[in-house]
Amino acid sequence: MQRLAAVVADATAALEAFEYNRAIEHTEGFFWWYCDDYVELVKGRAYGSGMLAQSARNALSASLSVLQRLFAPFLPFVAEECWSWWMEGSVHTAQWPTAEELDALGGPDDGSSAELIAIVSEVLGEIRKAKSDARLSMKAEVKRVVVDGAPSQLDLLKLAQRDLCEAGQVKQLEMLAADVFRVRVELS
C-alpha cells in the first residue's frame, strides 16, 4: 500500500497544480504494474479461504477503490460504471483517496515490503520474458527457476515463494547465495 500511497500523493499534487498529464501518467503507470504483477501474485491467494485469503481480498478491494477514484476525473463514464458493479452511490461523490487512508490499512513501513515487491516483480518479469521469447502462453509451465542473490534478497523472496510459483506456473524454485542478482528460467 506504500507504493499506492505515493501514487495518490503524486496524482493529488499534480491535479492541484493543474498538471493533468502528470496525474494520469502516475496513475496509469501504477495501474499497469498493479495488473501485471500485484494482481497476478495475489489472485491465487485471494481465491483461497482463511485469513490470508481474506487479507488478500481486502487489499485488492481497497486498492481497486482507490484506483477507480484516481481514474474518475479522466475516465468518468468507465469509472462510474465499474464503481456501480460493487459500490453504492457514485464514484464522483466518493471521498478523494488520501495517503492517510492507505496508511491506516497498516502494513510494514520499514521498506521491506517495497523491496520484497521489487524482487518478486523482477523474478516474475524474467519468467514472463522467457515465456514470451519462447512464444509460449503465460500459463505455460516452467520446469525450474534459479535465483541468485544476496541472502537478504533471498530471505525476502522466500516470503512470496508460493505466490510467485503459482503466478509463474513454476514447478521448482531454487535460491542460491551470490553477489549478483540473477534469474535463470528453464522452461518445460
Rank of each mutant, 00 (worst) to 15 (best):
A130S: 11
A104T: 10
A150H: 13
A5Y: 01
V183A: 04
G106K: 10
E115G: 07
E80L: 05
Q172K: 15
I127M: 09
Q95N: 09
F31E: 00
A5V: 00
E174R: 13
L70T: 03
V91Q: 07
G111I: 10
C82R: 09
H92A: 12
E186A: 10
L67K: 03
W86F: 11
D110K: 15
E174G: 10
G125F: 14
A72M: 09
K158R: 13
V183F: 04
S121E: 10
L154I: 00
S132V: 08
G149K: 05
L187W: 06
D179A: 14
A11G: 06
G111R: 11
T93P: 05
A11C: 07
P73E: 08
E141P: 09
T12Y: 12
E166T: 11
S90Y: 12
M175R: 07
W96K: 12
L124H: 07
F30Y: 15
G48F: 04
V39D: 00
V7S: 02
S137L: 05
E81H: 14
G44F: 05
E166N: 13
D37N: 02
T98I: 07
E100V: 07
V8H: 03
V78N: 00
E115D: 13
V185M: 08
L41H: 06
V7I: 08
W33P: 01
A62N: 11
W32Y: 14
V180G: 03
F18K: 13
A14L: 13
A72H: 07
I119P: 04
L60G: 09
V180M: 05
M175H: 05
A14K: 13
E19N: 15
L102N: 01
A134P: 12
S61T: 14
K158T: 08
A11E: 02
E166C: 09
K139I: 00
I117G: 12
W32F: 13
G125Y: 14
A11R: 01
A94S: 05
A9N: 10
M1R: 05
M1Q: 05
E122G: 14
